[in-house]
Nucleic acid binder design. Structure first.
Length: 465
RNA sequence: GUCCCCAUCGUCUAGAGGCCCAGGACAUCACCCUUUCACGGUGAAGACACGGGUUCGAAUCCCGUUGGGGACGCCA
């Protein structure tokens, strides 16, 4: 049987990091088994669902490179079908109309709380004659759930989980306005869409019991389930905004590469021996549910940064330069763009994110004169300035303008002056980059070119006195 | 509160009874490389939550305790 998985987000916000991982696992599982990965937007909450959220989710999935098959299913559009199934259950005596008012339910809730028991609908309309129905009250449709025995889930990650049916009550299938509840629509949609494997967050594990009861009532074969643990914040508690509960677009803006985020998310809760850097091809080949861990894991930016740095260094210079030019608003300036491409080799070993890369690259994009920072200014006073003045003459006469030769010039100069190379290189760095740290300075000179280099030295020498 | 789930270095994890006085990665620290900062290299420190069993032998199996998480809606 062909594997069919799905990602079923509700469009009430961005595609957050936990959802992204759920989508990734579903996608990998389907691709690994040569199956189908589908997308269903659960937009039945008309109040909270927005068009913007739908777009954010779709953009996020595309950015992450998680492509889905077939058409996207919008759950709300299927409401008539959900109602139809509920009616069928009513006809077969598997469901019933319940006329209890919200007030009555509140009373039950409070009574249950006072008694230290969980809220359970007491089934007061379960076997009542429909003729008793009060007028003017629109009923909900409730499932006639089994009252004894137990319901068991054979979960691919959590193993066999069982619960006594007394713990469960008769849940609402259709609201009094005739719209389906989440529990009901999920089951009908998964069935109709031919989903074979439901892979979702751990928070749905207890929902599964109730959903299983609907499958049983309809005599449908349930899919197999896999509940993956949730992602927590660094403190072990629920992931907060501050700690990473952000939309994937926020990660893009912070300068993370989609391949790095994918690799990071994959390793969160799943492992393959000692492998850390895992390409998408390998992931598809290796991924399976049996290696998914059962405990929740904590989100760690430091590890994401490290992974991102790794992928950054693998990425070709043009792509990086283009992103940097965009971030620094200099895209289209070909001189600058060429400089960025030429300087990228030295730049990319020094950054963890594209954002950091852009900040480090800024000095390449500046127009003279630069405004050196405090530490750089300190390099440009007194001795530093004198060294630069003399070095400038020698550089102006340099026969070539390539890094290795420029370094030889500087070394010869330092030796002649009886100073360490650092005493030459640091003022030079301050003059050319406006800072005390930069890519290798002779590489910077080559990238900047003779004219710009000499000009920046002149600016610095003049300003430094 | 009730039900359900989980538990190896600070973090992510390897480990499916002897290969483990527990391996890798990130982070930390030291050293090397070096014109700065990185990258890279070498090394150090660092964990089986606790208590009982089972077994010749347990990180691995069972029970309990503790700790964490999740679910208890006419939200999804």
């Amino acid at each position: 049987m062909t594997v069919v998985t799905r990602f079923a987000p509700s469009p009430t916000g961005f595609l957050h990091i936990g959802g992204a991982r759920t989508a990734l696992f579903n996608w990998l599982y389907a691709r690994h088994h040569g199956g189908v990965f589908r997308l269903r937007i659960e937009d039945t909450d008309r109040q909270r669902s927005t068009k913007e959220a739908i777009e954010a989710i779709i953009d996020g999935l595309k950015w992450l490179g998680l492509d889905w098959d077939d058409e996207t299913v919008f759950q709300f559009a299927r409401a008539p079908r959900h109602a139809e199934v509920a009616m069928e259950m009513l006809k077969q005596g598997k469901a019933y109309y319940c006329y209890s008012t919200p007030e009555e339910l509140d009373q039950m809730r409070e009574a249950a709380k006072a008694a230290g028991k969980p809220m359970r609908y007491d089934g007061r309309w379960r076997d009542r004659d429909p003729k008793d129905a009060p007028t003017g009250v629109k009923p909900v449709v409730r499932l006639k759930a089994p009252t004894s025995g137990e319901t068991v889930v054979h979960d691919k990650v959590q193993g066999e989980v069982r619960v006594a049916n007394e713990q469960l009550d008769d849940m609402v299938l259709l609201r009094s306005d005739g719209t389906p509840t989440y529990m009901h629509s999920v089951v009908v949609d998964d069935h109709d869409m031919g989903i074979t494997d439901v892979i979702r967050g751990d928070d749905h594990l207890t929902n599964t019991f109730r959903q299983l009861q609907i499958y049983q009532a309809m005599d449908w074969a349930p899919p197999s389930f896999a509940h993956i643990p949730l992602i927590h914040g660094p403190d072990g508690a629920k992931l907060s905004k501050r700690h990473g509960a952000l939309g994937v677009e926020a990660y893009r803006d912070m300068g993370y590469l989609p391949e790095a985020l994918r690799n990071y998310l994959l390793r969160l809760g799943w492992g393959h021996g000692d492998d850390e850097i895992i390409s998408t091809e390998q992931a598809i080949q290796w991924f399976d549910l049996d290696a998914v861990g059962r405990g929740p894991s904590r989100f760690d930016f430091a590890k994401l940064d490290n992974l991102n740095g790794h992928y950054l260094r693998q990425t070709d210079d043009e792509r990086l330069a283009q992103d940097v030019a965009q971030r620094l608003s200099v895209a289209g300036d070909t001189t600058i763009e060429h400089r960025l491409i030429a300087g990228m080799a030295g730049l990319k070993a020094r950054a963890k994110t594209l954002k950091e890369l852009a900040e480090n690259a800024r000095f390449y994009t500046l127009t003279r004169p630069l405004s050196p920072d405090d530490k750089a200014c300190a390099q440009l006073t007194g001795g530093g300035s004198r060294v630069l003045k003399e070095l400038r003459e020698r550089l102006a006469a340099a026969p070539t303008w390539i890094a290795a030769d420029l370094e030889s010039e500087a070394r010869a100069f330092a030796e002649a002056k009886g100073v360490k190379l650092g005493q030459v290189a640091q003022p030079l760095r301050a003059a050319l980059s406006g800072a005390t740290t930069s890519p290798p300075i002779f590489e910077v000179m080559q990238v900047l070119g003779r004219e710009e280099t000499l000009g920046r030295i002149d600016d610095a020498v003049g300003a430094g006195g």
